[in-house]
C-alpha cells in the first residue's frame, strides 16, 4: 500500500514536473537571450489554455487544428509583447523589466477574466481517459500523453538549438551579443524569436495542464510563480537545468503534499518549492547547471 502511494506520488510529480520543465524552458529561453525575467510566463500559459479551450468547445474545431491555431496565436502574442513592451526597455534597469512583466501579467489576467470570467471551465477530453495499468498502479492515459508531448517538444527544441541556423544564432546571441552583431546576426530578431518560442512552449504547457486537470481557471497563472523555484534550482541560464529542475520540484511538491500535508493540515505542497528556493539560493545560488557568474555582493 505504502509503496503504491509513493509510486503514485512520484508519477504525479513526474507529470506535473514535466509541465513545470516545459514552462521553465520557456522562461530560461527568454532569460538566456534577453536577460529579462518574465514574470508573465504563467499568464502566457493561461492565455494559451483559454484560447485552445475556446476553439475546441465553442467553435468545435478538432484538437490538432485548435492546437496549431493556439500556437500561432501564442507566437504572435510573444512577438507583440516583445516588440511593444520589452524592446524599448533593452538596457534599462532590472526593476523596470520586472515591473513591466508584472504589469503585463495584470493586463493578460484581466483580459482573460473579461473574456471568460473567473469560474472553472471544463476542458474537453482530448486524450482517452481510461487508465492503463503500469505495474501495480493505474495511470491515467492523459499523464502518459502529457509526458510524451513534453519529451517530444523538448527534443524538438534541443535539435532546433543544436542544428538549425536560427537556433545556433540564438545561442550565439545568448553567449555574446556584440560578437553576434558583428557576425551579422540580428539580435533584435533573436529577442523576438525567443519570446515567440517561449510563448508557444508555455501555451503547450497550459493545454496539457488543462487536459490533465479537466478544467481551467485563473489559478493557472500561478504556474508562472511556481516556475521560479524550478529555474533557480536548475540554474537560470540552463535549459537542461530547467528540465531537471522541473521534474525535481514537481516530485518534491507531490511528496510533501503526500507526506507532510497530513501532518500539518495542508499547505505544505504549495510552500515546499519556495522553501527549496531559499535553500538553493543560500547554498548553491547558481543552481545545478547554471553558469557560476553570479556577482558576489
Amino acid at each position: 500500500m505504502d509503496m503504491t502511494f509513493l509510486l503514485q506520488l512520484l508519477i504525479n510529480g513526474l507529470v506535473v514536473g514535466s509541465i513545470y520543465s516545459l514552462v521553465a524552458v520557456g522562461f530560461v529561453i527568454i532569460y538566456k537571450a534577453t536577460s529579462a525575467l518574465n514574470l508573465a510566463q504563467g499568464e502566457f500559459l493561461m492565455v494559451g489554455a483559454y484560447i485552445c479551450l475556446d476553439l475546441l468547445s465553442k467553435h468545435n474545431i478538432p484538437f490538432v487544428q485548435s492546437l496549431l491555431i493556439t500556437l500561432a496565436f501564442s507566437a504572435l502574442l510573444g512577438l507583440i509583447v516583445e516588440r511593444l513592451i520589452l524592446r524599448p526597455l533593452i538596457g534599462s534597469h532590472l526593476i523596470s523589466v520586472i515591473m513591466v512583466t508584472l504589469g503585463l501579467s495584470s493586463i493578460l489576467k484581466a483580459l482573460v477574466q473579461l473574456a471568460y470570467g473567473t469560474d472553472t471551465i471544463p476542458f474537453p477530453e482530448v486524450f482517452p481517459s481510461a487508465p492503463v495499468q503500469i505495474g501495480p498502479i493505474p495511470v491515467s492515459q492523459g499523464y502518459i500523453y502529457s509526458i510524451a508531448c513534453v519529451t517530444i517538444l523538448v527534443t524538438i527544441l534541443t535539435l532546433f538549438f543544436k542544428y538549425s541556423k536560427t537556433g545556433v544564432a540564438m545561442r550565439a546571441t545568448a553567449s555574446n551579443q556584440q560578437v553576434s552583431l558583428s557576425m551579422g546576426i540580428s539580435v533584435k530578431k533573436m529577442f523576438a524569436i525567443s519570446w515567440a518560442i517561449s510563448a508557444i512552449v508555455s501555451a503547450v504547457g497550459g493545454i496539457l495542464l488543462g487536459t490533465i486537470r479537466g478544467g481551467i481557471d485563473m489559478s493557472l497563472s500561478f504556474m508562472g510563480l511556481k516556475v521560479l523555484p524550478v529555474v533557480i534550482l536548475g540554474g537560470l541560464d540552463s535549459i537542461l537545468g530547467a528540465i531537471v529542475g522541473g521534474v525535481i520540484i514537481g516530485v518534491l511538491e507531490n511528496l510533501s503534499g503526500g507526506y507532510v500535508d497530513p501532518m500539518v493540515g495542508g499547505g505544505a505542497k504549495e510552500v515546499a518549492p519556495y522553501i527549496a528556493l531559499i535553500l538553493i539560493l543560500m547554498f548553491k545560488p547558481y543552481g545545478l547547471f547554471g553558469k557560476k557568474k553570479i556577482e558576489r555582493v
Binding site: L37, L228, V264, G265, Y274, L281, V297
Partner: peptide, 28 residues
C-alpha cells in the same frame, strides 16, 4: 541577509519566496 550574497533578480525571487513562506506560517 541573503541580499549580501545575491542581488537583483535573485533577491526579488528570494523575497517572493519569503512571502509565500510567511503566508504559510501565518495560516498555520
Amino acid at each position: 541577509i541573503p541580499s549580501l550574497r545575491i542581488k537583483g533578480l535573485y533577491l526579488a525571487m528570494a523575497t517572493l519566496a519569503a512571502h509565500f513562506i510567511v503566508e504559510f506560517i501565518i495560516v498555520k
